[in-house]
Nucleic acid binder design. Sequence first.
RNA 1: GGCCCUAUCGUCUAACGGUUAGGACACCAGGUUCUCAUCCUGGCAAUCCGGGUUCGAUUCCCGGUAGGGUCACCA
Length: 474
Amino acid sequence: MTSQIRTRFAPSPTGFLHVGGIRTALFAYLVAKQANGSFILRIEDTDKNREVEGSADHIKECLKTLGIEWDEGLDAGGDFGPYIQSQRLEIYKGWAQKLIDAGRAYADPYAPEEVQAFREEAQTNKQAFLYRNHRPENPPVWDGTMPLRFKSDPKPYEWHDEVMGNLHSGPEVIDDFILIKSDGYPTYNFAHIVDDSEMQVSHVIRGQEFISSQPNYLNLYEALGLEHPVFATMPHILNEEGNKKLGKRDGAKDVLDYVRDGYLPETLLSFIATLGWNDGSEQEIFTKKELIAKFSLDRVQKSGARFDEKRLLWMNGQFIRRLSVEELEKHIEPFWPEAALSADEDYRRRVLVLVQERLKTFADLPVLSSYFFVEPEPDYSLIEGNKQLKKLSSAEIKNLLSNTLQTLETTEWNAQAIQVSLNKLLESTGQKPGILFSLIRIVTTWAPFSPQLNETLELLGQRKTLERLKQAIS
RNA sequence: GGCCCUAUCGUCUAACGGUUAGGACACCAGGUUCUCAUCCUGGCAAUCCGGGUUCGAUUCCCGGUAGGGUCACCA
């Protein structure tokens, strides 16, 4: 008998997937993969009011984009389907009937307003609300039109959590929660336990918001006669201010937005994994392969971590620099400036090589490369704003540029020869590189920054270089 | 308010009783014959507070404080 590791990611289709959700998915994925187990994708669509059209597809796309692939569940099949909760209603009813038969579930006869009144009363008394304080003595037979509640058996619990360690609670947190709503759909509290059991999930990995209902789940597992899986609770990812969990309102972005903004999926993976986890070494950046090999739940931080975009940006630069030209070309495809699209492929590749180490995100490409493809608009503020150049008279500038023009006209056009010529110019004009090179750089690119001068000119080509010099002189 | 969880540089974190409390991001300064970026060097910067336990506490215990979660016919 093998005890296979089976983890799942079970989002509800209520909108986009932000980094917090992705991290939970990633960790569940890593736990499964490193043990040669299965990672399951299940959709928890038991709240039809909150359901957002198309979110399931979107969730799938996010996971695929980041390379978090599921072995079982949506689109992947498996022996424990269906993997969409709304298609499993009969299964939940079956389990619910068992509880009714065992006297562990009963119909909730109150009108919503009545329950609300109980709740407010508790609030007034500054107490936590417990439905079971109002448990009806002779509940009606459940006919499906009323909510079905769990008849709990309050008691203290101690349990282990792979991330949080040993946790405990008193009987006062156990309550008669709803198993099946009056619309016939099960609640998360009921459905996930049934599903995890039926799907033989070995590790339940989820966010911190469920930690306080854990004792209730434990109580239900007992009533159902089920062994509970291993639990692992992930701390929240906090917003930039660090004062609450990351959510849409804090401008939490869709993971795919980061990809659209020029971040590599690999960066996102490494960044998200190291938000609250490290392997104990001083390694800062991990590939997916390394994560699968090195990840462990017991090294996940217990406290929430803030999402630091600066670090993400740095990390993306690191990943971009590791890319081969071919990989870079593939990823950067959608980011080329308009004018580059008609340019020669080989030429574009050479531009890429030149700017690669300057890219923090792919979105930086246009600023970094446009002057290779279109004639730049002269921007004299670049000269006037330069501490050294602004001291020169326009006659002096023209003179320097004329000398440059003359020299470069007879220069063999490769980076090395260009550098030799530039060095000669330094000597003949008696100028410092800070003046001469800056000047040439500016009038040939009209950009605030560019790669090394000789390489820039080489790639720009002799014809364009000379043209731009002439234009600057006239 | 009840219950639960958490607490190391600004940020992400390392140190499972003994370290000058380490690394990374960010920031600052310098270097790489020009800019920007990269890269290199250096700098700034932390154990929430108070009690214990101990020869010795970032580490263990207790109490504060602060932050977070939860108390739905949401997940």
